[in-house]
């Protein structure tokens, strides 16, 4: 089985910031095969299209997944109305996740806004070898810093307005780390301009970099070809699909 569809029990629900919710979902068969960087495709009652949401936690022993999502529109608002004990309809786990190598001595995880949750399963694996750089609009929008610290990662916090951590974008502290050298891999998820800048720095320094992309999506499994992403493979331009070929891509493949 690569993926399955079913109704699963929400075992806990927390509001972790304004408009941002964390669900723990009891789904042993999905949790047992889920990989960091994959996503779940959630049915929003009354809507034709499912909503793709990245996996923010995988507990194979408890048989649970964690998802952390922001209300972005009517569909995610509908999903946010679900409560602990309710059933959630998921098609999961989907997509191509991050390449993980436990021999790495130093990795940098970078998340912008609601792009931070998919970094959490990586932080759990890499522990103290990871530095997590998070960027948010302001202090009130800041999430998951305790979770990253609990996983053993060093945390660097940036906000656009300086209300918490460093005043500025994640690229500034990342540039400093990149200058110091010794980074085996960089993993990033967030707004496209952020990813583009990080990919450029990694290219210049010759650092292996993987990024997680998002795109408006229909089927979620690579059949409908809706979520196209311009990439380069074997020197040929190729429309890859975020749901199946991604959401994680090697940064050098992506045509910006």
């Amino acid at each position: 089985m690569k993926y399955t569809q079913g109704n699963y029990i929400i075992s806990s629900k927390q509001a972790i910031a304004r408009q941002i919710y964390s669900f723990e979902i009891s789904c042993p068969e999905v949790a047992s095969i889920a990989q960091p960087g994959q996503f779940v495709h959630i049915r929003a009652n009354g809507f034709t299209l499912r909503r793709p949401i990245s996996i923010g936690g995988i507990d194979k022993e408890k048989g649970t997944l964690r998802i952390i999502f922001e209300i972005r529109g009517e569909g995610t608002e509908q999903i946010a109305r679900l409560n602990q004990g309710d059933l959630i309809d998921m098609l999961a786990p989907l997509g191509h996740g991050f390449t993980v190598d436990t021999n790495y001595k130093k990795v940098v995880l970078i998340g912008g806004g609601i792009g931070t949750p998919p970094m959490l399963p990586l932080a759990k694996i890499y522990g103290s070898t990871a530095t997590m750089i998070s960027g948010f609009r302001n202090a009130a929008a800041t999430i998951l810093q305790d979770d990253f610290a609990a996983a053993g990662a060093k945390t660097i916090l940036c906000t656009d307005d300086g209300s918490a951590g460093i005043h500025g974008f994640v690229t500034e502290p990342f540039k400093e780390l990149a200058e110091q050298g010794g980074i085996d891999a960089v993993y990033a998820c967030g707004p496209m301009p952020m990813l583009k800048n990080i990919a450029a720095i990694c290219k210049e320094k010759g650092i292996f970099c993987q990024i997680s992309l998002e795109e408006r999506m229909a089927c979620g499994i690579g059949a409908c070809l809706g979520c196209a992403c311009r990439t380069k493979r074997n020197d040929e331009e190729y429309f890859a699909h975020v749901c199946k070929d991604g959401p994680v891509f090697n940064a050098e493949e992506v045509l910006w």
Binding site: T48, L49, E215, L225, C227, E237
Partner: peptide, 11 residues
């Protein structure tokens, strides 16, 4: 190769 994204919208 098809069209550029976004190719999908909810209605």
């Amino acid at each position: 190769t098809g069209n550029l994204a976004p190719r999908i919208a909810e209605t």
